[in-house]
Design a binder for these strands. Structure first.
Lengths: 198, 198
DNA sequence: GCGCCGCGTTATCCCGGGTTAAGAAGCGCA
DNA sequence: TGCGCTTCTTAACCCGGGATAACGCGGCGC
């Protein structure tokens, strides 16, 4: 369980922003509990909320016309969870967001937040900071697909989310790194073998 | 050659922004000409500028420790060109930006722009809008790596940048879609064969 | 003109990962 | 306890793309 106020430093990096403003922002949020396996956002709906994960774990994924799932992201405490691209484009959502464990969110109404941002330069800057962090994350991911092998992507994933490794089913990890569950299983077998050789 | 003022609609989508503010922003820019094959931004430097492409074409790429190049993006008239992730993170640049044709840029000093944004909610919103569009682009790219085959990615690329296809060397296209030049050559041969069958 | 070089193509060989199918292990639930 | 489900693994086979090398071609400098 994270204390939302502890996130102040991370988001204020763009320039001076008062704790007061940040607290005002946090005050907009409503706590919401999601049971394991339940969805808090689904395709088709107009997206009305974004959320900060306080506790638990969620995954973002979409399903293509042929029914194949692709996991876009996992998000744990202190991270944002929302169909961000769709909010930006004001389009109906195409992504599922599902809890992988009992999860507590702090949810924000997009319109209410936007209204606040339209009146405050600091909140506008906060909004900008949110997107910037998301952007850097995606660019990182692009790098991984361009320059790393599946095995390297897997090891990177393990290093990044050690605390979640046992909460996430293997086939979802596979989907996240862009391979099939069978291929991931083989990679894991390879990795174990290499470790034994030392 | 694009008229920068014509971009007003694209960037004002987030909320009301006056043409006046947008013009003030544009007034910060300085025109800069880059000869074909020259670089306008290179790794190692502290990043001081971002730019709008007025005419021509550039590519963004990085080189890994083993010397392998990966193309992150091509940018033509009306699009932004900058090591954006590094600006956001205030880190020295890791990316090369090279002109693929004689190119005219409208360059902006990051600090000057930031100063302007710190005084104007509308400019702050504009800055936010810039990042949002970049974010959506990266998410699109993530989708392509997760769900499309190399051949599909190639055809998508052809559809997206028909006007640049003959300006961009094949091996750079290959790098952009995440395969080797040899593989792209085979794919092209396959595609031609399929077209003949009709 | 000649030679050189960068670029794209093609062939060969190999390997990683996709596909399919079968089986093992864990777990909730009747 | 036994059933069924999901998750993970393993094996067989196939195919796309990586690596390397040879060749052709056009551009360019000499």
């Amino acid at each position: 369980m994270v204390d939302p106020a502890s996130l102040y430093e991370r988001f204020s990096a763009l320039g001076a922003m008062s704790r007061r403003t940040f607290a005002d922002f946090l005050a907009l949020g409503e706590e919401k509990r999601i049971a394991k396996h339940a969805f808090w956002s689904q395709p088709g709906e107009k997206v009305r909320h974004f959320a900060l994960v306080l506790e638990g774990l969620v995954r973002h994924y979409y399903v293509d016309p042929k029914g194949r799932e692709s996991v876009k992201a996992f998000r744990g405490p202190g991270e944002f969870s929302a169909p961000y691209a769709e909010i930006i484009q004001r389009k109906p959502s195409r992504t599922f967001i599902q809890a992988l464990a009992d999860t507590t969110l702090l949810t924000f109404d997009v319109d209410v937040f936007e209204e606040m941002a339209s009146r405050s330069l600091e909140v506008q800057r906060l909004a900008r900071r949110f997107v910037e962090l998301h952007f850097v994350g995606k660019e990182q991911r692009e790098y991984e697909f361009l320059q790393l092998s599946a095995e390297e992507r897997y090891q990177k994933f393990c290093a990044e989310r050690p605390e979640h490794l046992n909460q996430i089913p293997q086939h979802q990890v596979a989907s996240y790194i862009g391979i099939t569950p069978v291929a991931l299983s083989r990679i894991r077998a390879r990795v174990v073998k290499k470790q034994k050789m030392r």
